[in-house]
Nucleic acid binder design. Structure first.
Lengths: 227, 227
DNA sequence: AGTTGTGAAGCTATTCACAGCG
DNA sequence: CGCTGTGAATAGCTTCACAACT
């Protein structure tokens, strides 16, 4: 019921903006560790990830006091603490639904296993694709979409990745949630609605480009005025 | 530093948070238009994209007064205004560097042409891949990486998409900028640094999953406490 | 001396609630 | 009357600047 928690895990909620930056810090620290660095100052690490040192220190202070004044942060220790906070010390089985170009890109994306993610299932309705073996860290056989519920239950999957066309996204999402999945990563260009208690993150490739085009247009507008 | 500040486009700067939502509104309005809707209220549109109606109205009011009190917004008119604001009424040639799984997924992503984006070049250093024809809206031949500068100049490319492995990202980014590109969409799992005046947006697939894992872990933590 | 950790201040974004208008 | 548009209030995030500590 009430566990004492010797290592105080974020009783004070970490703000969303900070959570979004933690994986970036994590990635930079891994690179530093590989390069053999043992300590790093807030100034150095901030420069490497493109934020201000004050922001970085504030972010890290929300997790705990893991630095040494006058010295900086020990790379390995900080890496461990961030990993723990992000849940990367656990094993996260996930399913990818839709083995088109994007689904393949995801399945072939290295660096899942090193961060605790494991592809427990690849699912597609196309009989031409079912049976194919895909993967970077290890090969996974594509299974028919009908077996979605089985795969989720067998492996205790909590994270589902939607890489289907837009029109199929909501139906797949509903099935994933009904089967027990509670976090959805949606790559389909469509808003998916979920019951409360389920988390969704969406990435729409076209959408990101539109934001860029907006900024580009602004620059062009400014140049016209100057000339 | 004292600029005269005589902008014509966006006299009142539209906040970044709003810009990020405009493409979502755009997508929802396209869907509504296809379904034959002629008007829509802030309440309806907000529900379709998953924001509050107050936020939606505030966002739209920053672009101008395009609604009718007591009625709502005319779908076609609002769609046009948002498109104009986002620069979607223009033609945006872009290059995609790196024709691995992700590069192919991007090249095959339909709905570029309908939003004003046009793939002016696909580039890859691998001779096995060079010459291949890829694409959804129209086929584009993969050209050798050496021709990056040529492609950018020929087509007047302002937007570059990096879909290379992490280690190649910064070098490709530097070459794109040197060739005249001013907006970078980075899909490589690596921070790219750019001179001021160049915009960057980064999407790291693994990074997004880490944020999800964080939320999932929180839910698990809460359940442990309850049981 | 050097760098973290953090209140306080400043800024940006969201929500509220209602006046204004069709 | 219904729905937009918006000032005012609130919440959230970032930056500042310096005390605290090694």
């Amino acid at each position: 019921m009430s566990l004492p928690r010797s290592e105080r895990t974020a009783i004070t909620a970490v703000p969303e903006a900070t959570v979004a930056r933690l994986p970036v810090y994590h990635r930079a620290l891994v690179a530093l560790a590989e390069r053999g660095a043992t300590t790093v100052s807030s100034e150095e690490l901030a420069a490497a990830v493109g934020v201000t040192s004050a922001k970085l220190r504030k972010d890290l202070s929300l997790l705990g006091s893991y630095g040494t004044r006058g010295v900086g942060y020990e790379v390995d220790y900080l890496l461990y603490q961030i990993s723990r906070e992000l849940g990367l010390t656990q094993d996260w089985p996930l399913v990818i639904v839709g083995v088109g170009n994007l689904g393949r890109a995801l399945a072939n994306y290295g660096g899942f296993s090193s961060r605790g993610f494991r592809i427990a299932g690849l699912l597609d309705p196309d009989p031409e694709i079912v049976g194919e073996k895909i993967g970077a860290d290890f090969l996974v056989e594509v299974r028919p979409l009908d077996e979605l519920e089985d795969v989720v239950n067998e492996a205790g999957v909590l994270i589902g990745v939607i890489a289907t066309p837009a029109h199929a996204a909501q139906a797949v999402c509903d099935r994933l949630i009904a089967a027990g999945v509670r976090s959805i990563m949606n790559f389909a260009p469509h808003v998916v609605v979920v019951p409360s208690g389920v988390s969704v993150r969406s990435v729409d490739l076209g959408l990101e480009l539109q934001v860029l085009a907006f900024h580009e247009q602004r620059k062009l507008g400014r140049e016209e005025v100057r000339s």
